[in-house]
């Protein structure tokens, strides 16, 4: 969520149970202005927090000219001193997905180790040919990958909030919010990430799409069906979406108003048991 809207937006997502203390809010208001200046961001989003065993990571995301591509993530433990995270690479994602397990510890230099045994040769002499490879991943890398995956899988924007013009993806200044009835339907919310399924759609389906708005995947195409919980909260005035895949991700949108945003406050683990739980 936009750091300029923290005054009200944190209250709108508080229905999930987590909020920021007054001290943290005050610290964020101060430090994010400086951060934006120092890194020359167009705007700064409060991305969320990840709970560790010993300490919690606070994460913000700086956005450049292109809202989708120019992203930089920073983390902090006290909401004042921010550290830049490197972008996620494919190799890093693969290593982390193999090695990192369990909860975050709260120490960026903590090493997750995973011993992998490669088998070479036939089954007969398998015992001799086993080759042990130890994969070591630091928690900072895991943090990078987790943020990347959450952004990739469950970042949400309402339809029409962003437009694509001349190849750049920017906020739509004339976006005035979805209507109440539109906000109750999942296909009006889009994944704010590179589209995966859009090109697979048939021409008939594509005919109704507006290329300057509908350049993202809608949530209604997600598998499994029902991986989102859509409710109206705060006296049924605010549309709140919660991801059941990444428990802790909350999105809010005030119908008939341009306010929207998402935040992740959880332990940074994906809910792999989802198919059993619906």
């Amino acid at each position: 969520m936009d750091s300029n809207s923290l005054y009200y937006s944190l209250d709108l997502v508080a229905g999930s149970g987590y909020t920021f203390t007054a001290e943290q809010r005050a610290a964020l208001q101060t430090s994010l202005i400086i951060l934006r200046q120092n890194y020359n961001f167009n705007r700064v989003m409060l991305w969320g927090k990840i709970f560790g065993i010993n300490a919690d990571y606070f994460i913000v995301q700086g956005r450049g000219e292109d809202e989708l591509k120019d992203k930089k993530n920073l983390y902090s433990f006290n909401c004042v001193d921010w550290f830049l995270l490197p972008p996620a690479t494919d190799a890093m994602i693969e290593e982390v997905s193999k090695a990192a397990q369990g909860r975050f510890m709260g120490d960026p230099s903590f090493k997750y180790e995973h011993v992998e045994t490669h088998r070479q040769g036939g089954e007969a002499e398998a015992a001799e040919e086993e080759d042990e490879v130890t994969i070591k991943v630091s928690e900072e890398e895991r943090l990078v990958v987790t943020i990347h995956q959450i952004d990739r899988e469950v970042s949400v924007v309402p339809r029409g909030a962003f437009i694509k013009s001349h190849g750049l993806i920017q906020t739509n200044r004339s976006f005035n919010g979805l209507s109440h009835s539109e906000a109750g339907k999942l296909h009006n919310f889009l994944h704010f990430t590179e589209p995966k399924n859009l090109k697979k759609k048939s021409i008939l389906e594509m005919a109704y799409l507006d290329p300057s708005i509908d350049f993202l995947d809608p949530l209604s195409d997600d598998t499994p069906k029902g991986s989102w919980s859509l409710q109206f909260e705060c006296g049924s005035n605010v549309c709140v979406l919660r991801s059941l895949l990444w428990l802790g991700l909350t999105f809010y949108h005030v119908p008939m108003a341009p306010q929207h945003g998402y935040i992740y406050m959880g332990d940074g683990t994906k809910n792999l048991d989802l198919p059993f739980m619906l």
């Binding site: 508080a14 229905g15 203390t21 007054a22």
Partner: peptide, 8 residues
């Protein structure tokens, strides 16, 4: 709220 927990 001091604890960072709450419903608003």
């Amino acid at each position: 709220e001091q604890a960072g927990v709450g419903l608003g």
